[in-house]
Design a protein around this nucleic acid. Structure first.
Lengths: 126, 126
DNA sequence: AAGCGTTATATCGCCTGTAATATAACAGGG
DNA sequence: CCCTGTTATATTACAGGCGATATAACGCTT
């Protein structure tokens, strides 16, 4: 017998039933800059949680994301953005903090809007 | 200094310019069954080429896909489909052959239609 | 029955992304 | 001045997907 791996799409997706029972439409959508990922579902979630918790560490924990990856995502997004999406300070009250900038809030809002339209599309793509 | 990897999306995608210069919308879309990938861009291309060349090996070669992966994709798609998309025979004239069934032709056509609508969406998502 | 090129199947090794872990740097507050 | 929890950074290990390779099975055709 052979292995035959199951190609299971990742979990950050949006789906919708297909006319033929058991079949679903799945999709992803994101923004990129210079061929690099700029904003997607994971990053938008992370930014929202940074806004909510005031720290990268807490935000990452809350979504079971490793701190390292959270930090890398933010570095990347900050670098690709017209101006930083997240401002960070190490040390100080509580050990340090991070806050979402206006540009960050705008980026999240824009992506969520695109995403909503996309889910709409996928929903009626059945 | 730290590594800072560039998160570059895969190459089976469709893109579109974003209003803000340098930013593009990228996306993927596929069909799945029981949480497994059923039909996407790569598989649709493979099926089209099988139809054209009459063999898995030739189709795979023509798109620089390893025979192994081509075979796995077809196994998976055949298993998930209501009826096989590709019929294969080992040995015989020319060593063997593979042909696209009516179900396979329908699957490709349906996906390409979905895909076209999706590209449309992404295009005007700017 | 021998030859041929395909289908069918197994195995190994690489590469890349990520998880896990560790440790330094930081700066406000007690 | 030390404590604290965060930001910042390096290192190692592991896992999955894929490429490369090898080999068997197959069945027309000659």
């Amino acid at each position: 017998m052979t292995e035959i791996p199951k190609f299971r799409p990742k979990k950050t997706e949006h789906f919708s039933r297909h006319p033929h029972v058991g079949y679903r439409v799945g999709g992803r959508i994101w923004l990129e800059h210079d061929g690099e990922l700029y904003m997607g579902w994971g990053r938008a979630m992370l930014l929202e949680r940074i806004d909510k918790f005031g720290s990268i560490a807490a935000a990452a924990r809350s979504m079971k994301l490793g701190y390292r990856n959270a930090w890398l995502w933010i570095e990347s997004a900050n670098r690709l953005a017209p101006s930083p999406l997240v401002e960070k300070t190490a040390g100080g009250a509580g050990g340090g903090r991070a806050r979402l900038t206006d540009e960050g809030r705008r980026a999240v809002k824009d992506y969520k809007k695109l995403r909503a339209r996309f889910e709409d599309f996928v929903g009626q793509a059945a």
